[in-house]
Design a protein around this nucleic acid. Structure first.
Lengths: 362, 362
DNA sequence: CTATACTTCTGAATCGTTACAGAAAAACGT
DNA sequence: ACGTTTTTCTGTAACGATTCAGAAGTATAG
């Protein structure tokens, strides 16, 4: 019985405390927990009983993780600050999809906090891999995550070589939205976006012009703007004539504020392209409040097809994408990576125009 | 220069790979990352450069965690299966509150998956503490979490000695709801709940009787039923005369189904007490679809005051609780525990009756 | 009774860091 | 020039498990 007579350490009970108390090898205690077939049922009982008596909380997961080289969780990096993740309906559906696959694989889902300037949380996240979802292109957290050299999947991010990406055909969706409005005869367009330019850089709340658009910091924002632009120019509408209002945030209130400004312009736009449904819902509400009739006087189209899109009157015409599937695909791809397989290439998910009641012929 | 000439291990680059390549001590490399003041700027640069060249991903967080005895994340155990967490509006607000405090403390939020039968995910979660939220009283995952002997906070759980609890005055809320309906002159009540009895045990979809209620498996369910019961009996209404319909799940569809059954009973209830707003919203929709007028023919009151409660017509009379604050309090309490302080006792959050348009005098 | 095969248990190496005491070198004051 | 302080760097002991080769001990077969 290896019995040290030290001044009684504070009280951290480990596997070897239990082993010592019983006079058995630590490996035996370990086996009692992990390989019942490696020791007699009798001894195993005694080990477990002694563990209970000593208040041993079971094998320390961190030590186990170190030894086994697996954390049993994947980290999710999301653009918004952590709490906002729980507010955005589209993001929630994506997270739900991710969570579904992870749950089946018995993996935990670690939401990693962290404002760009501080990457330590990413560097120290106890995970086996990352899903990077809708981060600003320039966000240092993305770099930090990639530097970890863990299996990683990009979602709504600019693709990179050697990193599997799930991408959505945002550009096609934006084109479909625009063509729909054009086919209804609209000629005066305006666009509502968010976070096209970082808040502290943006000069004012006025619609911004075409020059500054190149600084777009979200990949999908760029894709969607691109998709709006092409059919417009093809229809002979100068891109520089299309006012773009840049909101601080993706929410209904900002959308409502944006529409007020845009409606005051001359010529008054009759067709509004919103980069997200939340902005569009806000725009509808704002327009109605200002006394405009949607869609008679003003057509509005969103992007995302969140559940709320059908609950507003008029129901929102929008571009549908399968958010849940995005999450599922991302989770699945990551799980394949973790299993050492190379995932099924990078996936491109289709979108679909859903015409409802917020758009009409001019 | 300690130079082993082995057959070149696969390729796992660690701190000592870098140290060896540079001919310095491992502690120096460690210091380069964690204590810049402990070595010359020059050497530090060289270390970092070599690390970059070798593709060293930085200090392994698991090893660091083992050494430092901290994981930098807290685990959240939630009743629903992982993906459902992202669907329940009330749960989302709670999670948002939790996430807010954790983010400030730079802690990650680990959503732990796991169906009762398998507790390994809880046992192996790489966390510094747990928040146990709205789990079935008998769920083995709760036991498993407590057995970890980590700082833990209970939220919407039956309190236990030595474990801080945040609890909401559900019983008072339920009383207020009932008294409100009584004061409107109602005498024929019915209750819609969910998961009062585990699905596989429950015999049928018919309203269940009073005997089986003792098996209630969610703490808040018990509290709320208790709160309904007392004023009813005080008003001379026999508890056994109040039909209770038990849904499989907390969602609108189940609420809508429940109301159909209840309205078919004689005497037809004129006042419905719903354990959650989601059930209530479903009940309103279901009643309307069956041709009943709410609140003229039927008063319905919910519980939770989720945002959707105001968006339905008629707007839902309900009991408001501050979900976000629940999350904040829980997070705060856990953070205090982690800091070695004993948190500000256990908290009891108040609730409030919000009368809207779904209730009226009979 | 011996050779062979199982069971059951042990010891030491390993996972990749950080912390700490102290050695070596450089800077300083007088 | 010499003791003293400061700066820079090193070696090694934790952290708490798992793994694996093998030592005892037992059972099985011939």
């Amino acid at each position: 019985m290896a019995n040290e007579h030290e001044p009684a350490k504070p009280h951290r009970i480990t596997i070897s405390t239990v082993a010592a108390a019983l006079g058995v090898a630590v490996s035996t205690v370990s086996n009692a927990y992990n390989r019942p077939d490696q020791l007699s049922a009798d001894l195993r009982e005694r080990v477990l009983a002694m563990a209970a008596e000593l208040g041993y909380p079971g094998p320390n997961p961190v030590a186990r993780s170190l030894r086994q080289q697996r954390a049993g969780a994947v980290g999710v990096l999301f653009a918004e600050r952590l709490p906002y993740a729980f507010r955005d309906p589209a993001a929630l559906m994506v997270l739900e999809g991710i969570a579904s696959t992870l749950e089946q694989a018995k993996l935990g889902l670690l939401l990693v906090p962290g404002r760009d300037d501080d990457t330590t949380t990413v560097q120290q996240a106890l995970v086996d891999g990352f899903i990077v979802y809708s981060m600003m292109d320039t966000d240092p957290l993305v770099e930090a995550a990639l530097k970890r050299r863990l299996p990683t999947v990009l979602l709504d991010q600019p693709p990179r070589p050697d990193v599997p990406s799930i991408i959505v055909d945002d550009e096609a969706g934006a084109r479909m939205a625009t063509e729909h409005l054009l086919s209804l005869g609209h000629r005066h367009f305006a666009i509502i976006t968010d976070r096209l330019i970082e808040t502290h850089v943006r000069p004012s709340h006025a619609p911004i012009n075409v020059q500054t658009q190149s600084e777009a910091t979200f990949f999908v924002t760029q894709l969607r703007l691109q998709g709006y632009r092409q059919p417009l120019e093809q229809a002979g509408i100068a891109w520089s004539d299309v006012p773009i209002y840049d909101c601080n945030d993706n929410n209904e209130a900002d959308g409502a504020a944006a529409i007020q400004i845009l409606l005051a312009r001359t010529p008054r736009p009759t067709a509004i392209l919103c980069l997200t449904d939340r902005l569009a819902l806000g725009a509808i509400a704002g327009a109605q409040q200002a006394g405009y009739n949607v869609p008679e006087q003003l057509s509005i189209v969103g992007f995302d097809d969140i559940p709320q899109a059908t609950r507003i009157t008029p129901a929102l015409t929008t571009i549908r994408q399968d958010h849940r599937q995005k999450g599922l695909s991302a989770g699945q791809a990551l799980i394949e990576l973790l299993a050492g397989q190379s995932p099924t290439g990078y996936q491109r998910l289709a979108v679909e125009l859903v015409v409802r009641d917020s758009t009409a012929a001019i």
